[in-house]
Computed example of a mutant assay.
Amino acid sequence: MTADDAQAPPLAFSGQRLDWRDLPRHVRSRIAELAGAPVTAEIGATTGFSPGFAAVLEFADGRQAFVKAVSPEQNPDSPDLSRREIRVARALPAEVPAPRMLWSDDDGEWVLVAFEVAHGRAPEQPWRDEDLAQVLHALTALAHVELPQPCTLPRYEEEMAPAFTGWRTMLRSPDVARITSAVDVGELGAWAAAHIDELAGWELDGLQALAGDSLVHGDLRADNIILDGAHTWFIDWPHAAQGAAWVDLAFMLPSVAMQGGGDPQQIFWAHPASEGVPPAALRAALAGLAGYLAAGSFAPAPLGIPNLRAFQRAQAVAALSWLRELS
């Protein structure tokens, strides 16, 4: 996150955030202690889904840091996600375009982590051609990052195993057509309902398609990208894993499409990362992603993230539209 981007207009979807004054006194004191100087100013982050505190802090000695703080009170799952982000930050190779972690702390309730400030801005919405071209170029370099061996990052296919069950879950529903049409009330929803057996079968093959030895961010969207002139930062890495080199590109494109960035089918196959990718593998991976998003969109909103389900539904529609082209 950046000082510049923290002041930008929010994207259409974001999470609920705490201000500096909302943090307990002992948490504010601990942050100042870890930073080595009192906090003098806060520039709150306006993008991203993480609940809790996230802001660029300025300190009395002139330094800045992007600081996150969260407890189970904001969301019961977020502290563990922050703990995972800390572990990933320690494992990322130096050449990864991610802000360096400065310090972290965990008292069993509040998890704190600070990163260097990456100045810049989020890609404009709707996507501009030049922004998308810059991000796609950066993804090419990211796919060629060599992970140290042995690597402590998990396998992406293992991480996504609980998520790639959406179509089979919906298939067991007594009213499949009603559920699928709730994702899209038009022709696309009707297509999903008519082809749900095929979607469930493709989903079964999706995990194998994710396997590989490349670095995978696992959650690339516009709000996890910062453009600093010609340099591209990828931020928020708790879902990082080892997987197929083309997965980040494929899984980012439904969000690009829903935010006006163009045809994912055309963008994917024009990108170097798609070279040698079997169409069946792409179809299987997209089926798993679309099922996860579609099924997840019907669940109650998580604490502190009230509009996540609407975002998932919009992404599910974009992923399904692309998937239908591949069928």
Rank of each mutant, 00 (worst) to 15 (best):
R178T: 15
A54P: 04
T46D: 13
H271A: 12
M258L: 04
M258T: 09
A91C: 11
I267R: 09
I43T: 14
N75L: 06
R21C: 10
S82L: 11
A244C: 12
E73N: 05
F234E: 01
P123K: 04
P99R: 09
G36T: 03
A245S: 15
E95V: 10
R168S: 12
L215N: 07
Q266R: 14
A230N: 14
A69R: 08
A141S: 15
L326C: 07
A200K: 03
R63F: 00
F311L: 11
P126V: 01
A35Y: 00
S71T: 14
V183W: 07
R283T: 15
V117Q: 00
E130R: 06
Q242Y: 09
D19P: 09
P99H: 04
G52L: 06
L286E: 14
A240Q: 12
P79K: 00
W191C: 05
A270N: 12
G44Y: 02
I179D: 13
E325A: 13
E203S: 03
D219M: 06
L320C: 05
V256F: 11
L147Q: 08
P51D: 11
V111F: 10
Y292E: 14
V247L: 15
L112Q: 08
G218H: 06
L253G: 08
F251R: 12
V145W: 08
F268R: 12
R178N: 13
P306M: 02
A45M: 12
R324I: 00
A6P: 10
F59L: 03
S255Y: 00
A295H: 14
D205G: 00
A245Q: 10
T165A: 02
G262S: 10
Q7E: 13
V39K: 00
P148A: 09
Y156T: 12
Q208S: 15
D236W: 09
M1H: 03
D129T: 15
P126W: 04
E73T: 09
V88M: 11
A3T: 13
R21A: 15
W246I: 07
A240W: 11
A299K: 13
T40H: 03
V317L: 06
G48Y: 04
A98N: 11
A6H: 11
Q74V: 08
I179C: 06
D263H: 06
A250S: 07
A319M: 02
A182H: 12
A94S: 14
W233P: 04
A257I: 00
T40Y: 02
L11A: 14
I267G: 12
W167G: 06
G166M: 05
V183D: 02
A138G: 11
P300D: 05
L81E: 11
H137Y: 10
T232K: 07
P254Q: 03
G261V: 00
P174I: 05
D223C: 11
Q266M: 11
A294F: 04
A163G: 05
V88R: 09
G206E: 10
P99S: 11
P10L: 04
I196N: 13
L282Q: 05
T169S: 10
G201P: 01
G243P: 14
E85L: 05
A35K: 01
A94G: 06
M1F: 02
L293Y: 09
W202V: 00
H144P: 04
Q125V: 08
V39P: 07
A301Q: 04
Q312H: 08
G201A: 12
R100F: 01
D22V: 09
G229N: 07
D106I: 06
S181M: 13
L112A: 08
S274W: 01
S104F: 07
G36A: 00
G276M: 12
W167A: 01
I305L: 03
P154F: 07
I235E: 05
G189V: 04
